[in-house]
Design a protein around this nucleic acid. Sequence first.
DNA 1: AATCATGATTGCGT
DNA 2: ACGCAATCATGATT
Length: 347
Amino acid sequence: MDEQPRLMHSHGVGMAGHPGLAQHMQDGTAGTDGEGRKQDIGDILQQIMTITDQSLDEAQARKHALNCHRMKPALFNVLCEIKEKTVLSIRGAQEEEPPDPQLMRLDNMLLAEGVAGPEKGGGSAAAAAAAAATGGIGADNSAEHSDYRAKLSQIRQIYHTELEKYEQVGACNEFTTHVMNLLREQSRTRPISPKEIERMVGIIHRKFSSIQMQLKQSTCEAVMILRSRFLDARRKRRNFNKQATEILNEYFYSHLSNPYPSEEAKEELAKKCGITVSQVSNWFGNKRIRYKKNISKFQEEANMYAARTAVNATSVSAHGSQANSPSTPNSAGGYPSPCYQPDRRIQ
DNA sequence: AATCATGATTGCGT
DNA sequence: ACGCAATCATGATT
């Protein structure tokens, strides 16, 4: 494409200054007036130059004629020679980029959001993750997230249909093979080295992958915006349901001397309450500080839960097996406990 | 609309 | 990495 000026130039100067070739030409064309086509190099080159301007049929015919021309091999060699010299300047140092870190980052993000994952019904994985992140029990906030889920799957669908167009198995390869065939075809009449074809394929691939990258980037952006709008838990804070808070409070007050649940305990609590482990951690963090800050305010609550666990303990004590009942005495040195005393109410 | 309650976030120290 | 303390932002209550 871009070598036209160069060819034109060589046509004007290079050829004329090649005595050997000129000689050869004259010899070759002198006696062949059988087809009635006496052409000099200029004409042939002119044909080659204008071949793209012709209609396809005409071009095809002309190409065929050119191919059959007896001078063709010689000319072609010369063209190749010239090309070989000029092509050196084209040979820009372009190294194949290894797996692009940014692209990988985008891929990972999309995968994590459930957008790039395997085709599933409505991105349920993402919805589940979202539900877990905001910490709710299904029925409670499924309505909240249905909008989010719908929008996410919309994004997902767009992403996939767009991606299919540029996927390696799709249009990219098709286009590439098409171009390669075209170039191979042209390489019979035009000096095109295999390396050039290779280079062209590289260019096409880079172009396609850059389009893909853009697609992924904009999809990521869309997902992030969606997330920030719908899932910013801080903006859309929901109180835990009563059962969850009771479970948490029960644990807290029955472990008042050491209200620091282990990782496993947190996991169990999270499962029982239908919230995440980090939410459990948050809850205990808040609870500890707020309890400590104003113990008297929590006195009533503490007594209530203490009484409840006491009842539990007596009913369970028949079995004798207590995995994690209040093992440490209340005075072990955690928080000053209200030490359950029905008579002594709040001071 | 004020105020309180509460889950989440942030900055810091360990 | 964890906990604490302060703070934010929202939900619930008055």
